[in-house]
Nucleic acid binder design. Structure first.
Lengths: 229, 229
DNA sequence: CCAAAAGTGTTCAGGTTACACCCATGA
DNA sequence: TCATGGGTGTAACCTGAACACTTTTGG
């Protein structure tokens, strides 16, 4: 016999009291591009268990902020940047992923122009670390980083997001070297140019590179008008 | 001056006490294929606020189980099925998504063969609902469903997952109609066959359909040997 | 004048699309 | 015999990959 009584909000709260023993955090894989390689913003772990290990930037989610707000908060507090590209990737919920207790974390990755961000290296233990040189990290952060990199590689093939790593104006060489760094492959210069002009993602700003020890290339900007629908 | 003292586990627990006020749940988009259309397993909401609205199958995550375990538990308790395809999609953390309080939910989607699952319709309010006929749902579940469907459409283009919706042996017509239902487009029969045989995803089991009111088609099974590396 | 990178087209191979007729079965 | 879907091949098109020489600038 089905005598299903509808639960009230109060009932739900009472019944689920036991479950409010899990903390939730967000971790940000903040990526930049410098000297031809991808770098990720890391901090020395402040846990004894992971002393001297690198950790992603993250924090517990506050009860009065949603997940995206939390990741933006972390990003802004660490880089000073607003209006940046940020995308959720995956949620990691293994039982023992955090030595302090049950902490489920949602991973985001962000692409920023490394030069917009004035890092105060002297004041903290945050630094830009080449992604490819990381062997191990605190917690399950290596897994989180790898997962974000995998998603990034998929996304850049379909969506115009790498421009977030570049200044307003950039050369085709810079653009290409970012793709090469992300995908880990060499690309053909002629095919690369052809493809981008066909896709109509670029706008010629009619300026040239300066202070380069070779023939200066033309500068372009991202054709954002094409994508703001 | 940086006098960074490493935090102990105990410190972390004490400092974060305030944060254990968020509950975490998982919601499962359980999909099946029947009569030429995709269906999702739903239940009438047991909340007053959403009386008569359809809800995904979900539950709070227990402190002693990880996220994947929680979604498998829900799937098994509702369908009786084990060893099924289940994939995490996205985590929804808006402040007011649940009227009972702060509940962050991680969405999973699952693909099952609808005939393997003996539904006890009389005993509960669970039923299979055509995905395309759903206009609104309880909570933010319509958004969750749409997000899962979007990911499903991307995944089926690259990965051999639709076989989870089919019985062991199936005809090419059944396989094609699943792709058409998921992608929402008509496909060319000749090109579809050509492509699948080229990809080597199918094994001819040397049997024919039975009880069809037309020329019976050959039956195939998924070439799982090819993918179990 | 040398080094370094910019700029520029064509060819080939492989994959995707479009398309129509005969066949086997059950009613 | 009719209705229904099964089974089959070819040509046009498009996309991606491979590939080399001349030009411009700074040193």
């Amino acid at each position: 016999m089905n005598t299903a009584s509808h639960k009230t909000i109060k009932n739900i709260l009472l019944e689920s009291k036991e479950y409010f023993k899990i903390a939730i955090s967000v971790d940000c894989v903040i990526l930049g591009f410098e000297n031809g390689e991808l770098k990720v913003l890391l901090i020395k772990s402040d846990l004894e268990e992971f002393k001297d290990e690198w950790s992603l930037l993250g924090d517990l989610v506050r009860p009065d902020e949603d997940l995206n707000t939390a990741s933006y908060r972390i990003l802004k507090s660490r880089t000073g940047l607003e209006d940046v590209f940020l995308e959720q990737v995956y949620t990691f919920g293994d039982l023992n992923r955090h030595p302090a207790g049950r902490v489920i974390t949602t991973a985001y990755y962000s692409l920023i122009n490394i030069n917009d961000h004035q890092l105060k290296l002297a004041h903290n233990q945050i630094h830009w670390h080449p992604v490819n040189e990381l062997k191990s990290m605190a917690f399950d952060h290596k897994l989180i980083l790898d997962t974000c990199m995998k998603q990034l590689r998929e996304r850049v093939m379909e969506h115009p997001i790498v421009f977030n790593l570049l200044p307003e104006k950039f050369s085709l060489r810079e653009l290409q070297s970012i793709y090469e760094a992300i995908l880990g492959i060499k690309l053909d210069r002629r095919n690369f140019r052809k493809k981008f002009f066909l896709m109509d993602w670029l706008v010629d700003v009619d300026e040239l590179e300066e202070d380069v020890p070779h023939r200066p290339g033309k500068l372009y900007r991202f054709n954002k008008e094409k994508f703001q629908n």
